[in-house]
């Protein structure tokens, strides 16, 4: 009887973040146990930073059983790159960086054009190349199902064929906590340990675990172009500023850390993690909708990119 009462007490104090964390650590350890050459795709964004934090909990005092891999588009925010390099050094973990700029040269690809030249499609080439170069059989990513409709249907262990393609109609059923990561040579599995987390969960976790983030997540003053549909695009060397452009100085922050050319800033007064959580609870615009120009192209934009080998 005493035991059951204790248990009730425990259930009462149970935090759903513990459950999400336990699930993610379990998945990371499954990757370590099932694959010969896994990798953790690290972007310097908050989701992959959480993955690294979870990996520490899963594997320390041992080393990570995988390197951190970053596909650098050349359009990244400096703050994210600095953060990435410092983190790898501080943790003494292996970091592999491959550059989209190199892929463009080597494969004679057409670089992104237009006012806000995107390398979003191009980074798929670099990603597939780095997977081939190191023969990675599993790539851990920070994608979440709440981000986008196609992701809502993707498995936690998502099998890609040798061309990196995702076939939504041929997904393996995924039951209980049993993950089937068996693949043939040349194929790989994309693994998403924080699939079941929402943007707010990630921030609550960052708060609870006191995880440090690149400064661009917090409000700062920045020069931006105010686009016709109301988005704030950072002015930088890759963006063509025209005379008709409305250039403004605003207090902004970034909700996602993508490329400088296709990630919009949001006006904000959030200087701390607490401010951000408060802001999110009141926010009316979803994460990708607020900040991603690339998903607005068509209803099925993400689905198409994933089928083509994208994260």
């Amino acid at each position: 009887m005493d035991y059951i009462q204790d248990k009730e007490e425990i259930m009462k104090n149970k935090d759903y973040l513990d459950e999400l964390e336990a699930e993610a650590i379990y998945i990371l350890r499954e990757v370590a146990g099932q694959f010969d050459r896994p990798a953790l795709l690290f972007s310097g964004g908050k989701d992959s930073i959480c993955l690294v934090h979870l990996a520490l909990k899963a594997f320390r005092p041992g080393k990570f059983p995988f390197p951190l891999v970053h596909v650098d588009t050349g359009h990244n925010f400096e703050e994210a790159i600095t953060y990435r390099d410092n983190l790898a050094k501080q943790l003494d973990e292996k970091l592999i960086v491959r550059y989209v700029t190199d892929t463009i040269k080597a494969k004679k690809l057409q670089d992104g054009k237009g006012k806000f030249p995107s390398r979003n499609g191009l980074q798929t080439y670099t990603l597939l190349d780095v997977i081939e170069e190191f023969e990675f059989d599993a790539c851990i990513g920070g994608a979440r199902r709440d981000e986008e409709k196609a992701r809502a249907k993707e498995r936690i262990f998502s099998v890609r064929d040798e061309f990196g393609q995702w076939d939504p109609k041929m997904q393996r059923p995924e039951l209980w906590n049993i993950y089937n990561g068996k693949v043939n040579k040349g194929e790989n599995v994309r693994v998403f340990p924080i699939s079941n987390w929402t943007e707010l969960d990630v921030w609550n976790y960052i708060k609870r675990e006191k995880i440090e983030l690149p400064s661009i997540y917090f409000t700062h003053e920045r020069e931006c172009i105010l686009t016709e549909n109301g988005q704030l695009m950072n002015t930088n060397e890759f963006v063509t500023i025209e005379e008709k452009d409305v250039v403004v100085k605003k207090k902004v922050r970034y909700r996602t850390v993508g490329d400088m050319t296709c990630t919009a800033a949001v006006e904000s007064e959030a200087y701390t993690v607490d401010d951000i959580i408060k802001e999110l609870k009141e926010a009316k615009i979803s994460e990708r909708g607020a900040t991603r120009m690339d998903d607005r192209v068509s209803e099925a934009a993400m689905e198409d990119r994933k089928k083509g080998g994208y994260f």
């Binding site: 199902r145 409709k149 196609a150 809502a152 249907k153 939504p168 109609k169 997904q171 699939s195 079941n196 209803e299 099925a300 689905e303």
Partner: peptide, 16 residues
């Protein structure tokens, strides 16, 4: 979520 579903008006897979 997926294009085929929108076209056919049915749900073809587990959506979370």
């Amino acid at each position: 979520g997926l294009r085929a579903e929108r076209e056919q008006g049915i749900t073809i897979d587990v959506a979370y």
